[in-house]
Design a protein around this nucleic acid. Sequence first.
DNA 1: CTATGTAAACAAC
DNA 2: GTTGTTTACATAG
Length: 795
Amino acid sequence: MRTSPRRPLILKRRKLTLPDGNASNSPARDEPDGESKGVPKQEHSKGDKPRDRVECGTQKFPAGIKIINHPTMPNTQVVIIPPDADIQSIIEALTAKGRECGSNGPNKFILISSGGSSRPTGSTAAQQTLQSKAETSTATKGARAADCQGGEKNIGQNPDKTVERAVLWPPQVNSMGGQEQEGNSSGEATSSGLDNSLTNIQWLGKMSSDGLGPCTVKQEMEKENQTPVQETIKIEEDSIAATATSSSLWQDSISERPPYSYMAMIQFAINSTEKKRMTLKDIYTWIEDHFPYFKYVAKPGWKNSIRHNLSLHDMFVRETSANGKISFWTIHPDANRYLTLDQVFKVSGSWEGKQVQQKRHIPELQKNTGGNSSNKTEPQNARRKMKPLLPRVSSYLVPIQFPVSQPLILQSSLKVPQPMAQGASLSGSEAIRSSKRVRIAPKVSVSAKPSSYLTTGPVKEKSHCDERPPPFAPTQSVKENNSQPGEAPASFPAALCIKEEKEDSYPDKWLPSFPPVSSIKEEPVQSDEETGLLLPVPCVKREKHFTVLKSPPRGVSDTVIIKRRKMGRSRRKQHLVLPCSEEPVLVLPESGGSDSFRLASDLPFLQETQSLELSCSQEEGGPFKTPVKEMFCKLPVSSTPSKVPTATPPMGGPDSWRFAPIAKESSELDFSPVRTPQVPFTSLQENLDLLGFNSTPLKNSLFDSPRQLLQTESNDMVSGPLTSSPASNPESTKQSSPELPASGLPENQSLMEGLVLDTMNNSLSKILLDISFSGLEDDILGPEMSWSQFIPELR
DNA sequence: CTATGTAAACAAC
DNA sequence: GTTGTTTACATAG
């Protein structure tokens, strides 16, 4: 009900989840009863009818067998059988029962072994559906299923038919492959035939393990509403047996909502392409292919959510092809951590999460999935294949130093100086984030990922520093408007804009989220050292402040970037980025002059204070939600004009990160899982030593306020590391140094120090302990992960 | 309060 | 119908 002008009509949309549990009963669910008026959901009605038959169910079967009505599927019952039961006899009994009940009764049964976990292991777990009706061969059905929606959700269509499809479990799961398919092929790949019914499976699994909780039902129901499911799934044992493992994975993947936020998945998708850009449709396809849940189980509304996320988060930048006909979504280089599914997914099929993830997801999952927390319980540990990107536990987050040879460094946040690896990622933001926390980075080789992009110049700036590449990512040039690589580079450092404290002034925070982000990341395996890098940035704030602008991506020549601006309160707004004529101005060209801006921004340190505001001030300045935003802001600035012309200014928003959030966030970290640590920066070499872990959580604890942390860290950074980096860049150094003072950090410094110590003492010790306990490790990293993966030395 | 998810209204195509 | 943007609301933490 809200009166917003815009949407007057809608009274309530909420869907309520119906609690009810029993399948049998509540068919209804119509949501809102309350106001139902508006929403008619169609079909439910049917729900009632069938449900009754329940009665037919349960009785008369061999001992140990439980029969319950399928929560969402009419005429279908779930038969839970003991492992040792004689399936054959049970089938016969069911068949007979079906006949008895006649048309009204259940005509499909899903058999599940009570013994097993949800995953079918071998024959025992087999699930079968029987139909009283004549069934077509499963194979046929399978084919049919495939046909059905061309790959899309099957949903709706045949409602009542009790069509069955046989699903082969392990469909080929393309998803696992990790490759992206671009193309819209939509269909084939996944067409394997799963349907919604998958959902069913899910709950079945739960039931089996849990004992039939009604709970799951809800979910089902909801979905059901939308899409009537009719099919039952049949699994064939054989196939199951053969591919038990994969099947189980597959199953999970389908039935369970991936522990990643839409934002993360979008990033996975986009980063899976070479160009790091994708059309909306391709994003949908990629997600469906890699996360079958969305293809078969999720409501259609997930696509709306994807679009919503793309528009909402500044990190996603829309570029238009030259002709203007095609829109590609890209990730703002500064914000892009280059996270890919591979990083979180284990080859075997298991997911690795090296990273950490956001906690949120988890919750999400829960909800979505079933809403039942109960569900979670069971499977989680054991089975999950997907890992969340970030561990929740704070302790873990804390950076640790490993035995590794390297020393640890505190990072400051700033990305600034740090150059991130050039190559890689850019991620200024990350850097930033990371900066906040101390990290110890392992040094890893820098290999950095190759960012292909980079190309240009931004990096250059770095030239000074060789190593340090530009903090931000030059990597992608994609967007940049400016072209000048050369110069840009110089400026680019500038890129960073900082927002400065002003932020305070600024109302919004930009990215609050970001900051957090920064923190941790660990990297995944690969490359990233970046995290390690850290720059010693001076102050934390700065970090926040400055946003990095990333070099403007220029990217494709043709493409136009569109940016959004945020408006006041909306979560975010966008504006297109124009070529930015306006703003851009400053940025590049001037790098020198602009320095003030940029540099300032870049180097937040000193300058920030001063300059910042300017730039940012933004008018609107709306706060961005996403980290990206910051970037954006900067972008314009630094790089090119493109986007942000004016917008840049707005950047002010940036603040958000800076402060508080940090602390808080830090714990969480970046939410965006995405952020990978990419850090490949070579620049780091110096830093190499460090590891990249960040920790977020601890910090928090350590510091009262995030800010303190930041400051402190930054200070540290400054003092310490900085030097190194600075070396390369005079400017940076300068900045840094000044900054310290400026920032008023003195305190901070002390804080920093304190921090450090704490970290060392407390955090490290904790961490070490954790490591020692494998169990924890699993929790954190996941079964398949090992700290050693991250840290070779541990081995 | 924040981040996320979801649903929807709307505007352009 | 698709794509994008923006509101509004819900919910977990």
